[in-house]
Design a protein around this nucleic acid. Sequence first.
DNA 1: TAAATGAATTAGTCGCGCCTAAAACGTGGA
DNA 2: TCCACGTTTTAGGCGCGACTAATTCATTTA
Lengths: 228, 228
Amino acid sequence: MSVTYRKDLSRAVEDYLKAIYELQRGRQQVSTSALAERLGFASASVTGMLKKLHAQSPSLVKYQRHRGVTLTQTGEKIALEIIRHHRLIELYLIEALGYSWDEVHEEADRLEHFISESFEDRIATFLGEPEVDPHGDPIPTKEGYIAVSASTRLSALQVGESGRITKVLDEDPELLRYLTKLGLCPQAVVTVTQRDPFGGPIHIQTDAGATQMLGDRVTDSVYVELVQ
Amino acid sequence: MSVTYRKDLSRAVEDYLKAIYELQRGRQQVSTSALAERLGFASASVTGMLKKLHAQSPSLVKYQRHRGVTLTQTGEKIALEIIRHHRLIELYLIEALGYSWDEVHEEADRLEHFISESFEDRIATFLGEPEVDPHGDPIPTKEGYIAVSASTRLSALQVGESGRITKVLDEDPELLRYLTKLGLCPQAVVTVTQRDPFGGPIHIQTDAGATQMLGDRVTDSVYVELVQ
DNA sequence: TAAATGAATTAGTCGCGCCTAAAACGTGGA
DNA sequence: TCCACGTTTTAGGCGCGACTAATTCATTTA
Ligand SMILES: [Mn+2]
Ligand SMILES: [Mn+2]
Ligand SMILES: [Mn+2]
Ligand SMILES: [Mn+2]
């Protein structure tokens, strides 16, 4: 019976681990400056924290000066726990309290650090142990398993190809409201009808029949899986 | 049009203001040591914080060296806002997530500092703008009005007198579970059938017909209003 | 009225997590 | 191969909110 004991971590530490996890997608090392950029801190501050996270035992990150950082198993487990909190909370706010999907990210980004295990369990039960959040992101299990998605950016589709939206980036409320207006939410199917050269807009047709031109800010924020 | 602008306050500051409010009941000054005792800090730490709260503008407390502290209007407004959060959250956890009344205090004591105004409004609406929390404490309105209760301790009842329970102290889960077992929750009516001298137990009869001897730890934690 | 006592304050310290400025590192182009 | 430039780290500092130890204050009692 392995009791998973975990000391209380500060919000700061949890945010670093989550940010490293999110930047690590694909890449095998996360740079100090990328992390600083994402967290909105000076690089020097990040270096200091990375040394601390590395020095802990068990250490939460693997960090080599000038080489970047990766999560250890322990660190990844914690990151996934916070991400589970975040995504469960987002969905709960919509399902139970009538938030719209552009309002939930900010609230979840705070509350994710302060709910108890019991609260987590209860909202998960209320929601029926859901597997994806309102923006299409998979919700890690309590054991720290997370589904991998093979989807690509909408911007990668060629003319004539169709894709079913799997997820959209959730950090910009403005963008989410725009996507709502266009009906571009998970499960919707879009077909690329035209591509203009040199990073010009992509023309799409939605399953509702509407046509639309989308800039790359949008098409880079929407992920799809190919259909047909 | 007076827009109530309020800078972000730390959890520490909010906890001080709430503690001062709660200790101020009746008393006109709160002592450094009483505050230190309640917050679990060294007195020296409390002195330091009081000086800071006093120095702010607008100042949140009136503090005179060696004379104790009271809340200013501004400070009281903030304390009531946090208390509103606390009591709404307690009730919400029970009504929406199936918590029992002995589990909610701890969770609410944390979350009260981190929910948004929007979250507050939504749970208040969900709950139907409730006026009391699960332990019988009044919930301040959004405008900072709080109902005053004229209730007395159960320990003050004389033999033959009956009281309807208005509220119970909510900080000790153990005690709350004991009260649950005895059916001593708000609205229940109890009659004192015997009092033993020298702080001995008080014998009561509940409206369910059961009789019980209660020590002063219990009878000091239960508040009643006289009936008949 | 002066000494004793307990409460409160001051003085100094510490860990956390951020900052800026200066130094050091590592790498791609000449 | 080496130098210039961008990245990263080091050095030093700051506000916050706790701590302990030493001191001062207010009040009570002799
Ligand atoms: Mn966060
Ligand atoms: Mn999301
Ligand atoms: Mn609190
Ligand atoms: Mn309560």
